[in-house]
């Protein structure tokens, strides 16, 4: 009985803080007010202050996790809606995203292996450039850690958005295609949200990049792990 009550409280707090953060982020648009970052930080602080184990929080959190799978399936919608535009730009988009997926997985593997990190950790960093629900399932099927994978995804998201002005200059990315593909391939939903702020065209290209890179990385990650690890 108490487990159910704890679970319900965890859900109410998570959804409540999220609902409060969404309008705040709309007003103050910084990477740090993005709900995924701000809400997670607030909940972590709450758990630490009240000395609540993660396990207890997950009595409710697991119910929210339950919707991650259907949410990935839902990503078919933007792909379907933008299919005509995608077809016209098929070659540049597919080439760019494929290049990005290979760079992301191989550098993640290479650098962590070079510094002698343990296997579970290496396998958790591999899917960092794709959206959390997919990254988590990739990490799970590679036998890495799901939570650790989610952490790397967030770091890739935040750092990508923060670095993007510099990267655009360094790599001379000035068109919505280059910028959208870059942000969507490297920083998933957080990058896409950032692109959407500049223009809807860049935003939709970024969405497409996020979806395609999720598919490509889930295919190449197990193969590259076998080759490189």
């Amino acid at each position: 009985m108490t487990e159910i009550i704890f679970g319900i409280i965890a859900i109410i707090i998570t959804v409540g803080v999220y609902a409060a953060m969404v309008p705040i982020h709309k007003k103050i648009n910084t990477p740090f007010t993005q709900p995924i970052i701000a809400v997670s930080v607030i909940i972590i602080i709450l758990l630490l202050v009240f000395n609540i184990p993660y396990e207890t929080y997950q009595l409710g959190g697991a119910w929210i996790d339950f919707l991650m799978g259907p949410a990935v399936v839902a990503l078919a919608l933007p792909l379907y809606n933008h299919f005509e535009r995608l077809k016209k730009l098929a070659v540049p988009i597919l080439s760019g995203v494929t290049a990005g997926s290979f760079i992301g997985v191989s550098t993640g593997l290479l650098f962590t292996k070079l510094f002698g990190f343990e296997r579970e950790l290496i396998l958790s960093i591999v899917p960092k450039s794709v959206t959390t629900p997919v990254a988590v399932s990739i990490a799970e099927s590679l036998e890495g850690s799901m939570s650790l994978a989610a952490v790397f995804v967030v770091i890739a998201g935040v750092s990508g958005v923060l670095m993007s002005p510099l990267i655009f200059k360094l790599f001379k990315l000035s068109s919505p295609i280059g910028r959208g593909i870059g942000l969507g391939s490297a920083s998933h939903a957080m990058g896409t949200a950032n692109s959407m702020g500049r223009s809807e065209l860049e935003g939709s290209i970024s969405t497409i990049a996020m979806v395609i890179s999720a598919v490509i990385v889930s295919v190449i990650a197990p193969i590259l792990v076998i080759i490189m690890l």
């Binding site: 730009l89 070659v91 540049p92 988009i93 080439s95 760019g96 995203v97 290049a99 990005g100 997926s101 760079i103 992301g104 550098t107 993640g108 650098f111 962590t112 510094f115 990190f117 950790l121 960093i125 960092k128 450039s129 790397f152 770091i155 890739a156 750092s159 990508g160 670095m163 993007s164 990267i167 655009f168 360094l170 790599f171 001379k172 990315l173 000035s174 068109s175 295609i177 280059g178 910028r179 593909i181 870059g182 942000l183 391939s185 490297a186 920083s187 990058g191 990049a209 890179s213």
Partner: peptide, 24 residues
Amino acid sequence: LLSITIISTALVMGGSGAVSEYLA
């Protein structure tokens, strides 16, 4: 690990964006 993630992310963004933009 933080540095590895950040460097890898920068390479992904620059690499994928540059390839797409060049081909487009």
